[in-house]
Write a protein that binds this DNA or RNA. Structure first.
Lengths: 238, 238
DNA sequence: CACCATCCTTAATAAATTCGTAATTTTTTT
DNA sequence: AAAAAAATTACGAATTTATTAAGGATGGTG
């Protein structure tokens, strides 16, 4: 029953009520979408940066970081469509949500058909808008001659395959998929390892060095993985 | 001689010395601004709440409610730019004024041209704030040919990259993102270092000097990073 | 189960870059 | 002219990143 054409589309569902999140997940998977789950705004924000998302469905009332705040943060980074969910149908929520950068709004309890309709509408709008490149939907990231295919997990440099370890791949994907953006070392650690960074930040440095050895002609003068002194690393946007 | 485009802009002039208030009124009307007058802090506060103001020029020494107190009250309500006027150029006044939320500062007797220049600068800053949101949301700050991209932490001057150290970057970002606003040295220290400033830090001065060397053609006559004597530094709004 | 290969982490050291301080000079204000 | 504020200069200390190497965990294989 699942559409093949939707198999590449990643939707993030964010709700602290796991039953609701799971229910939505079922509806969406039934339509053939690929679904990721998060249970608070912070997780959502991390996923938005790390994953190749095409739509976010987010509850407003959440612990840690509520839907409104999370939306604002995400908007600073990405331009993915966001549908807000709210238990109450109060105007205040709606207005806040939309002003803050949400693209649509659904009140709970919602009609599954309506949810799907709005999801499709947003996706159509997003994909047609040209705001996204065809490449992105396939999970392909690139800068200069460096190409990362996240579907096959293959990395090529000027057409030649590069062999990376899982950790190296994770770091490179994070940086290249957000090319130009500077990531502090501990943020890299947290996003790639998915656990709080205490102090072993040297680890990241060592990995960076190894990636450079594999993708840079002259690791001392990197073209792609650049350090921004005192701030972190970034993949040069070429 | 009056600009039509300024006809919609309402400036409140607050001074208990009516001659001075009227003099300022004339200068401003000459530029095409719409001028309202108030003769003490309480009137000013009322006007700030009732009228649709775009700028306030306020004397510090006033009966009923002085300029500092009035500024604090107004700040609780609105975020209109406020330029403080002071007969004496005593440090105490200046520092209090700026810490309390004034955006700029002029000492009497003042040069009419300077007054107008500062008025224009503040108005521009205030009115642009809403419309440049797109840039702001992406973390791009600019004044003149100086552009700061906070995502990639890149600074360019007339298109050419400028290499700044983390501290230099922090200072420049603070000033440029609030271009036109004067920051006392200890405020700069506290915001950039994120720790209390104990002794008057010569450190900031040295950093300013280093930034100037990198972004100014003639560091002795800076176009961007200007000192406001006895007060602090500001990035010129160009 | 022992062996091997791969990858990750840690530590130690080196290299690079930046920072803060103090002393001195210049500029501005009174 | 005196005083205050800011600019300038130079240099050693401190911070941050790079590099190298060794040890340990993991997983596959004979």
């Amino acid at each position: 029953m699942s559409d093949r054409k939707n198999a590449q589309i990643n939707i993030l569902v964010v709700d602290d009520d796991r039953d609701i999140a799971r229910a939505i997940e079922i509806y969406l998977k039934n339509e053939g979408y690929n679904v990721l789950l998060a249970y608070d705004g912070l997780q959502a924000l991390n996923a938005a940066i790390k994953e190749n998302l095409h739509l976010i469905i987010m509850d407003i009332m959440m612990p840690v970081l509520d839907g409104v705040q999370a939306t604002m943060k995400i908007r600073e980074e990405k331009n993915i469509p966001i549908i807000m969910l709210s238990a109450k149908s109060e105007d205040y929520d709606k207005i806040t949500g939309l002003n803050v950068g949400a693209d649509d709004y659904i009140t709970k309890p919602f009609n599954p058909l309506e949810l799907i309709a709005r999801v499709k509408s947003q996706i159509r709008r997003y994909l047609n808008f040209g705001s996204i490149e065809k490449e992105n939907i396939k999970g392909i990231y690139r800068t200069g001659g460096l190409v990362i295919d996240d579907t096959s997990k293959e990395v090529t440099l000027d057409g030649e395959a590069v062999q990376l370890t899982p950790t190296e791949y994770g770091i490179l994907k994070l940086l290249v998929s957000n090319a130009g953006k500077v990531f502090p070392i501990n943020q890299i650690y947290e996003k790639v390892w998915d656990e709080p960074a205490y102090s072993p930040e040297n680890t990241v440095t060592v990995h960076i060095r190894r990636i450079r050895e594999k993708i840079e002609i002259d690791p001392k003068n990197p073209r792609y993985l650049k350090v921004v002194w005192g701030l972190g690393y970034k993949a040069e946007k070429i």
